[in-house]
Write a protein that binds this DNA or RNA. Structure first.
Length: 111
DNA sequence: GTTGTGACATTAT
DNA sequence: CATAATGCCACAA
């Protein structure tokens, strides 16, 4: 990939707020590279750690962690997500830290 | 140049 | 739920 694409993808990933998540395909689209989900994965893999990218907020389709069960990365990602208040169950994000729209509409807490 | 692999996605069966 | 077919394309062998 060229440097611009690398930058665009890093920017998109950096743009994911704490407690929120995005998918590889979604990041690709946000980066202006629709259909290039694989490239996003590659960038996250080769991105130097000093960039401090919130890679743990990037998930596979269906908001699933893509790393193999039992792998170190798998556990690490779940750990980091939970540290932000995200609910992860069997490798899948069940609930974000901040209430989503559906929840607000279904359960308006205040009067 | 060809092939296999990979931090993926989408659609169809 | 699972598997397969496609699309995508960088990279290493």
């Amino acid at each position: 990939m060229n440097p611009e694409q690398f930058e665009a993808i890093c920017r998109a990933v950096r743009g994911i707020p704490r407690g929120e998540v995005a998918t590889y395909g979604g990041v690709a689209r946000l980066a202006g590279l629709p259909g290039r989900a694989r490239l996003v994965g590659r960038v996250l893999k080769i991105a130097p750690a000093n960039l401090k990218l919130p890679w743990h907020r990037v998930l596979g389709a269906g908001e699933r962690i893509v790393f193999p069960r039992g792998s170190r990365a798998r556990a690490e990602q779940a750990r980091r997500l939970r540290a932000e208040g995200v609910v992860v169950q069997s490798g899948r994000v069940v609930k974000r830290a901040r209430p989503d729209l559906d929840e607000l509409l279904w359960k308006p807490p205040r009067r």
